[in-house]
Computed example of a mutant assay.
Amino acid sequence: MSSPLISVAELSSSLGQVTLLDVRYRLGGPPGREEYAAGHIPGAAYVDLDTELSSAPGVPVDERGRHPLPEPEVFVAAMRAAGASNDEPVVVYDDWQGRAAGRAWWLLRDYGHADVRVLDGGWSVWRASGGQVSTEISPRAPGDFSGTPGRLSVVDASNVSDVAVLIDARAPERYRGEVEPVDPVAGHIPGAVNVDTSRNLAQDGTFRSVTELREIYGDVGAVPGADVAAYCGSGVTATHDLLALAVAGVHAALYPAGWSGFVTSVR
């Protein structure tokens, strides 16, 4: 694939030829399933980020972070129930400008799916462009998706500090430690640089051009061939930076536990 993104126009002409996953989710926002029921792209199946793209966190949160990666059997079952198969393209969208869809994109690729893309601009751009909307929720034939995790690079608490270019995807004020609305400790992993997810986006909510993204990430040393990894608070929105890096042609690892997992060792 030339890009991990798909435009509204391209998806409009491909409906019925791809497996379409609606992963609408926002921290503190409206329930995604209710939003899906109120209207979605025709043919889309809803996938829940908290229960199908994540495991339950520890209480208190442990080294796995607030959104641990899902158990393989749970994730595979969810993808099959949504109609996903190994030999059919998958398109993922959300209403968070790709911050949740990036999680599903990353997981499917980590499990070996070869053709996964994120709808550029998501639900809001689809609606603004006059895309079709459906409230029909029809039973779907299960897919034959299979796979095991491990195709993509990850780092953990033991080696995250050794990464040459470690990118913190959170808002600048959280990176600087000025505020911390979620986790018990403020600040960032020593040596990390900040490229918050909003910098990946143009004013209309779609991703910036390849040239712009290469400049943004090149400024912090994230260039093709460099040792790069990204993290966020809990491992979800860091995949937005990984998606932007993929658009720019830069391979990067994920620190799935994020800051929420990292701080368990310093509390």
Rank of each mutant, 00 (worst) to 15 (best):
P149W: 09
P4H: 11
N200K: 09
M79Y: 03
D110T: 11
R214I: 02
A77F: 14
G218V: 08
L53V: 02
G258N: 08
N200I: 12
L254N: 09
M1T: 15
I167P: 11
F75M: 10
Y36V: 04
A101W: 07
G28Y: 09
S124I: 00
V23F: 10
D48A: 14
L119K: 09
H188I: 01
W123Y: 11
W123E: 03
E71V: 11
D204P: 15
W106N: 14
D87L: 10
V182F: 02
S161Q: 13
E71Q: 11
G32C: 03
Y217D: 02
D94N: 06
T135W: 05
L27N: 02
V8C: 13
A38M: 12
D196Y: 14
S234I: 05
E178D: 08
V59L: 06
V179E: 02
A78N: 06
G83T: 15
A226Y: 04
F207P: 13
V133F: 00
S12F: 00
M1W: 03
V179D: 01
V8G: 07
D204F: 13
G258C: 04
Q132N: 08
A114C: 08
S161E: 13
G191I: 08
D168N: 10
I6H: 04
E212V: 03
G28S: 10
G249Y: 01
D120T: 06
R103Y: 13
P30Q: 05
L213H: 07
F262G: 05
W123P: 04
A238Y: 12
R199T: 12
G58W: 02
G28H: 09
Y111D: 00
N200T: 15
